[in-house]
Design a protein around this nucleic acid. Structure first.
Lengths: 130, 130
DNA sequence: CGGAATCCTATTTGATACTG
DNA sequence: CAGTATCAAATAGGATTCCG
């Protein structure tokens, strides 16, 4: 019996063509991307930035609980991935604005429904757990 | 200047109402849910299961590179979260089927576009990095 | 086959202090 | 303000062995 024939009615399989066999390759670059994007703070920062450009201190306040180290590290990773743009102004005191690139916006648009779902279902899910 | 007025034209802010202030609370249950869902193997297993019920060995093969420990651990977490259903048949040799719950399907439907996007953009993103 | 238990390593994360 | 550096702790992850 094939997997495709065991799929519940009403649930189409929309997996990317690249995974026709249903196997997620170990060395696949998408693994790296997913790891960056779905990192503990990655999602939160991308979501926060989806509201518009923001400064370091603003991001730190929004991603409540993040340390300076992780904020810097995560922002760097997202910047290297071409999802976040960093613009430092040569003023005293320093002012640095972070914003999403076009690609970053594309991604955040997919992340928003996910986070919204997490918010809506969080109580039900966490409840009933020890 | 408010954040909402700094939002680029054409990019609506669709954040959940609960985050009207744009702050992601540290103790929020949704953090836990997001952590489970966006864990290294969580996404992959949920996606694999979105194609229909599958056995332990099949999941292990699909999430290439996963260890038995992490497979067991991740499946348990997802089961406790009410996203995955485990059905063990009392036969020799043992046969255990895993499948998504309704809530799990809801979630996987949101995850699919994300993973598809990661697949499509992975090469561009990983390229240009040291 | 489908795990559970154990041991050990690697990566992540946080707290703290310091700086241009 | 916007970071960097350092160290310690926590957690994730892997390899191996064993079991019903």
């Amino acid at each position: 019996m094939e997997v495709s024939s065991r799929r519940p009615a009403g649930h189409a399989s929309p997996l990317p063509p690249a995974l026709a066999d249903g196997v997620f390759p170990a060395g696949c670059p998408s693994r790296t991307v997913l790891d960056h994007v779905t990192s503990k703070w990655g999602v939160l920062l991308l979501l926060a930035l989806s509201e518009g450009p923001q400064r370091w201190s603003e991001l730190r306040r929004r991603a409540e609980g993040i340390s300076e180290k992780m904020l810097a590290q995560t922002l760097k990773t997202l910047e290297r991935d071409g999802l976040v743009r960093r613009e430092a102004q040569p003023v005293i005191p320093p002012r640095v604005d972070y914003s999403l690139t076009e690609r970053g916006y594309e991604l955040s648009a997919l992340l928003v429904p996910l986070v919204a779902w997490a918010f809506e279902n969080a109580d039900d899910i966490v409840k009933g757990q020890p």
